[in-house]
């Protein structure tokens, strides 16, 4: 469908953008538009004012230092793909982003837009939760930082207030020897995940895993870590048997809904397989 009517503004500064957003109850920030514009085409969203953030070039930076990786909200998937520094600074992010939508959408879609949209089957919210990211936001009442686990509330619902803008996603530093894996299953590459697993763990001198983080995407109303699966990994040398146990624990931890794309039972089984394969990949066991 054609979009509903709205007013449009393209401010030059963040302060102007915030004032515009606060000027109406139903104003919305527009980043890459790759989620919001389809929502408007479906008439699921009909804001009366769109505040285009494209002139806010400060939000387009990728900063990497000892504290980790800071992604400006307007950083596009394409920018992450093109940034060779991230191969070492955050390989899990890079792997996950290769699954985000299709070529043309990756040229426009932004990390901030995806985080604000909060689709439970989207990769970026899943990476943010798995990696204990902080989401920096700002509004006319001031700036605050929200941890990813508190940020995502339900499908398309977040802790972001209507008059706030996401400015930055902060991923904690990535130790060089950390093991990681990402596995996603979708009907067609680039489509939303029927289930996906993002995992990482560190390894001690005895070869045992600690600090396991296992995140599930697409099998709940928000992305979530799976403590029961992580408990199977911590303190163990990750092998086939451990990965299978973690996979079973992952399946048992979730209760996904059925929809037109897959039944809940299928998704429940699938997340186990994704966790298992991601762990095997992290342990260097499989080319799957």
């Amino acid at each position: 469908m054609k979009l509903p009517a709205f007013d449009y503004a393209c401010p030059a500064t963040l302060a102007e953008a915030l004032a515009l957003l606060a000027s109406r109850d139903d104003a919305k920030a527009l980043a890459g538009g790759q989620s919001l514009v389809p929502m408007m085409a479906f008439r699921i969203a009909s804001p009366s004012l769109l505040v285009d953030l494209r002139r806010l070039s400060d939000l387009r930076k990728i900063a990497i230092d000892t504290s980790g990786v800071r992604l400006g909200a307007m950083v596009r998937w394409r920018d992450i793909e093109d940034d060779a520094r991230l191969n070492g600074a955050h390989p899990l992010l890079k792997a996950a982003v290769s699954h985000v939508a299709h070529y043309q959408i990756r040229n426009r879609g932004t990390v901030g837009g995806s985080i604000a949209h909060a689709d439970p089957a989207a990769e970026m919210p899943g990476i943010a939760v798995t990696c204990d990211a902080d989401i920096a936001v700002t509004g006319t009442r001031g700036a605050r930082v929200i941890c990813a686990d508190d940020f995502f509330i339900a499908p398309l619902m977040t802790a972001l207030a209507a008059d706030e803008i996401i400015t930055e996603i902060r991923l904690p530093a990535w130790p060089p020897r950390r093991r990681w894996g990402f596995r996603e299953f979708s009907r067609r590459r680039g489509d939303f995940a029927l289930a996906a697993a993002a995992v990482f763990f560190d390894v001690d001198d005895a070869g045992k895993a600690y600090n396991a983080h296992i995140g599930a995407i697409g099998v709940g109303d928000r992305p979530a870590r799976l403590p029961a699966a992580e408990a199977e990994v911590n303190g163990q040398v990750v092998d086939i048997a451990i990965s299978e146990r973690a996979g079973r624990a992952a399946s048992a931890s979730v209760d996904p809904q059925s929809d037109i794309h897959a039944s809940g039972a299928y998704r429940k089984s699938l997340i186990g397989t994704m966790v298992e394969r991601a762990l095997q990949s992290a342990a260097g066991m499989s080319a799957l």
């Binding site: 979009l3 538009g33 514009v37 389809p38 285009d52 043309q104 959408i105 426009r108």
Partner: peptide
């Protein structure tokens, strides 16, 4: 499709392939 799944409307914007149905003309 007018909602960004079919790719029929792909154009080049500043040299990059994008879906013209997911971009407002004013952008």
């Amino acid at each position: 499709c007018e909602h960004g799944v079919c790719g029929a409307c792909t154009i080049l914007l500043d040299g990059e392939a994008v879906r013209a149905c997911l971009i407002l003309a004013v952008q």
